[in-house]
Computed example of a mutant assay.
Amino acid sequence: MARSNYRYPLYRMRHKARFSSMGNRENAMGVNVPGFVDEFTLHYAKVNLTIMQRYGTAGSTLEHSTIIAIRHNEKVKQPMLVKLADGNTYSITNISANNDSYISYDLLTLELNTKGK
């Protein structure tokens, strides 16, 4: 059986992220309006980049991005919004999925969402 390239101990998966997607939701007046609807919550670990990785992203669109690791989950897809424990909402810009084994992790690259706050 193939092994995952990266592993995260359970104590690092202590943060919770809320995942949302575009859909219709009911406003206070009972009218369906388009917007982001909460779908599910997952635990995640923060991924720290090395100094060389940080220098490599300097000046690029990835400079202000965040990377998190989650247990492999088929429900996570683009476009989705993710609300992290820091209270900020992020858009998923890349999903590095890994389903090699029963204990696999996906790396999500997130960019701070400044639209529709």
Score class of each variant (00 low, 15 high):
residue 95 I to R: 12
residue 21 S to A: 00
residue 90 Y to K: 01
residue 26 E to D: 02
residue 42 L to F: 06
residue 28 A to F: 03
residue 72 H to V: 01
residue 12 R to Y: 03
residue 24 N to I: 01
residue 35 G to Y: 04
residue 22 M to P: 00
residue 45 A to I: 13
residue 48 N to H: 15
residue 96 S to L: 14
residue 65 S to T: 08
residue 102 Y to K: 13
residue 81 L to H: 11
residue 15 H to Q: 06
residue 56 G to A: 08
residue 87 G to D: 10
residue 51 I to N: 11
residue 50 T to H: 12
residue 61 T to Y: 04
residue 69 A to Q: 04
residue 8 Y to F: 14
residue 90 Y to R: 04
residue 33 V to S: 06
residue 108 L to S: 08
residue 90 Y to F: 04
residue 107 L to V: 09
residue 42 L to Y: 06
residue 37 V to G: 03
residue 49 L to Q: 07
residue 28 A to H: 00
residue 43 H to I: 12
residue 38 D to P: 08
residue 87 G to N: 06
residue 57 T to N: 13
residue 71 R to L: 12
residue 10 L to H: 07
residue 78 Q to E: 14
residue 75 K to L: 11
residue 51 I to G: 03
residue 73 N to D: 10
residue 98 N to W: 00
residue 27 N to T: 04
residue 8 Y to P: 01
residue 5 N to V: 12
residue 14 R to Y: 02
residue 109 T to N: 09
residue 105 Y to A: 10
residue 54 R to S: 11
residue 84 L to C: 10
residue 34 P to E: 06
residue 56 G to R: 14
residue 71 R to Y: 06
residue 54 R to D: 07
residue 46 K to R: 15
residue 18 R to H: 01
residue 80 M to K: 12
residue 22 M to A: 02
residue 64 H to K: 10
residue 67 I to G: 09
residue 46 K to W: 11
residue 5 N to D: 12
residue 37 V to P: 02
residue 54 R to I: 11
residue 44 Y to W: 08
residue 69 A to Y: 02
residue 79 P to A: 09
residue 49 L to C: 07
residue 26 E to V: 05
residue 3 R to G: 10
residue 83 K to H: 12
residue 40 F to A: 11
residue 54 R to E: 13
residue 92 I to Y: 01
residue 116 G to D: 10
residue 62 L to G: 09
residue 8 Y to S: 07
residue 9 P to K: 09
residue 61 T to R: 13
residue 4 S to N: 08
residue 82 V to E: 03
residue 104 S to V: 06
residue 38 D to F: 05
residue 46 K to N: 15
residue 74 E to T: 13
residue 89 T to I: 09
residue 16 K to P: 00
residue 97 A to G: 13
residue 48 N to V: 13
residue 68 I to N: 03
residue 1 M to A: 15
residue 15 H to T: 00
residue 71 R to M: 12
residue 56 G to M: 12
residue 109 T to M: 05
residue 19 F to R: 01
residue 106 D to Q: 15
residue 25 R to L: 05
residue 63 E to K: 06
residue 108 L to H: 05
residue 75 K to E: 08
residue 97 A to I: 10
residue 22 M to S: 08
residue 63 E to Y: 03
residue 93 T to S: 14
residue 26 E to I: 09
residue 20 S to P: 00
residue 82 V to A: 01
residue 111 E to T: 15
residue 36 F to I: 04
residue 81 L to Q: 08
residue 47 V to G: 13
residue 16 K to S: 07
residue 86 D to C: 11
residue 3 R to S: 06
residue 106 D to G: 13
residue 102 Y to W: 09
